[in-house]
Design a protein around this nucleic acid. Structure first.
Length: 421
RNA sequence: GGGAUCGUAGCUCAGUCGGUUAGAGCGCCUGACUGUGGCUCAGGAGGUCGUGGGUUCGAGUCCCAUCGGUCCCCCCA
């Protein structure tokens, strides 16, 4: 069959075979966030394009070549390419900072990037996000990292399947000097850098550090540590001590710079050792102490994380972490003969009213076909209604595992099944 | 944006050196068993071989183009 319409490149349907797995990780994420004191925020898919140009950065790859932007009337819109900027926008728009204290917000959102798809990378993907707004202390960084690792572990991944990579990229106080140092290093080795990195040297020199192609050259690039200001150094040391206290394992990755412009100080990602192919980052995040002010709000320290839902699922499957089976229905109502069909429908409604999951054949098929459907439905019980049952106002209940049959009055049907499940 | 690779039934695939009505397994439907599922047996439905063009007496098979999937670079969740 030739398909007239298909899902767009890089966009995927989640079919019933898979959707229960999505429901599973989503409910785990919600429960996890609740335990850590987060509340949910939901923001629109569309924002003004400018929001992301200001926050993620006009020169970033995400904004400059991957964002879905379209114009309607005067306004330029963008499909959200990431989750943080909309949350910060909402935080400001609704004056949440006015309530004082720290705001911990979580979300589950689709996001859109026009890249060429590959394993673990899609044009519409989904992300579990968590943001902490108003917390400057490294306690917040430590709690966020611990929460993320805790999440993966409670899903059944083992510590050796994961690697937390941690870095600091300084702040507006100290980063300029470091950026100059990296730029100088780049110019000294200019001819050995790839074309991409030669261009980066002007716009965003730190990005040459996480270019794989130039890794051999940038291995000898200056480290940031001597350039960090006292506040940034103290923050980073304090965070590392807290992680040791919490026994959260990590590796320092001095090349971890990340592609979103708003990050300051802490940056991190979690790598899955197996299951993801080339796109092996399960999550990424960091601190963005300047972003709230950049978007017009009061100076507000903040940090957050985005976890790839598809990548998490791929990893869970590859690592054979325990995953739930879809839940079958409780009972399948079978009608023998035309007169029984309306009664079967009514009994199904009765079961549903009693919180039981019930189904029946909707095509008026033969008894044999209905039994086959009952079997295939995975239901524990088939409820058989024929002339005899109609006469007696009862129902024959067949246990599809043991083949045992019982007869109960129609009025007591729900109660009987509840007691026997 | 660059590259690799693969497109045959709903799914997984076979199809010889180019040869006649394109096959298998699974799944689906019906029956054996007229009020009883799974197992077995018998039968059945389902394919313009991704699409378009070319070579040839003849193309699923060879050539070209094109579309689509997957994966890789890049980038990132």
């Amino acid at each position: 069959m030739e398909l007239k319409y298909r899902a767009l490149e890089g966009m995927h349907d989640v079919l019933p075979e898979q959707s229960h797995l999505w429901q599973y990780v989503e409910s785990r994420w919600r429960e996890h966030c609740r335990r850590y004191g987060y509340r949910e925020i939901r923001t629109p898919i569309l924002e003004t394009a400018e929001l992301f140009e200001r926050s993620v950065g006009e020169t970033s790859d995400i904004v400059s070549k991957e964002m879905y932007v379209f114009q309607r009337g005067e306004e330029r819109y963008a499909m959200k390419p990431e989750g943080t900027a909309p949350v910060v926008r909402a935080y400001l728009e609704h004056g949440l900072y006015g309530a004082g204290g720290v705001h911990k917000l979580y979300y589950i959102t689709p996001f859109f990037r026009g890249e060429r798809p590959q394993r673990g990378r899609y044009r519409q993907a989904h992300q579990f996000g968590a943001e902490i707004l108003g917390a400057a202390h490294p306690l917040a960084d430590a709690e966020l990292l611990a929460m993320v690792m805790d999440f993966f572990l409670t899903l059944g991944l083992t510590p050796d399947a994961l690697e937390l990579r941690l870095n600091t990229i300084g702040c507006p106080e100290c980063r300029p000097a470091y950026r100059e140092a990296v730029r100088n290093f780049g110019h000294e080795n200019y001819t050995q850098l790839c074309k991409n990195c030669q261009a980066r040297l002007e716009r965003n020199p730190l990005r040459i550090l996480d270019c794989k192609e130039c890794a051999d050259i940038t291995d000898s690039a200056p480290p940031i540590d001597p350039y960090l200001c006292d506040a940034c150094r103290t923050h980073f040391e304090s965070l590392q001590n807290l992680l040791k206290t919490l026994e959260v394992a990590y590796v320092r990755d001095v090349r971890l710079v990340r592609g979103l412009d708003y990050y300051t100080r802490t940056t991190f990602e979690v790598i899955a050792e197996q299951g993801l192919g080339a796109q092996n980052a399960l999550c990424g995040g960091g601190r963005y102490d300047g972003l709230v002010a950049e978007l017009g709000g009061p100076p507000t320290p903040a940090l957050g994380v985005g976890i790839g839902v598809e990548r998490t699922l791929l990893t869970l499957q590859a690592m054979q972490a325990p995953l739930p089976e879809p839940r079958p229905i409780d009972a399948y109502v079978v009608a023998f003969g035309e007169a029984a069909r309306p009664v079967a429908l009514k009994l199904a409604q009765q079961l549903r009213a009693a919180q039981l999951a019930a189904e029946l054949d909707l095509e008026a098929r033969s008894p044999k076909a209905q039994m086959r459907l009952a079997n295939r439905s995975g239901a524990r019980y088939a409820i058989l209604i024929g002339d005899a049952e109609l006469q007696q106002q009862n129902a024959t209940i067949k246990d599809l595992q043991t083949h045992e049959q019982s007869v109960v009055s129609q009025a007591e049907l729900s109660e009987w099944i509840k007691n026997h499940l």
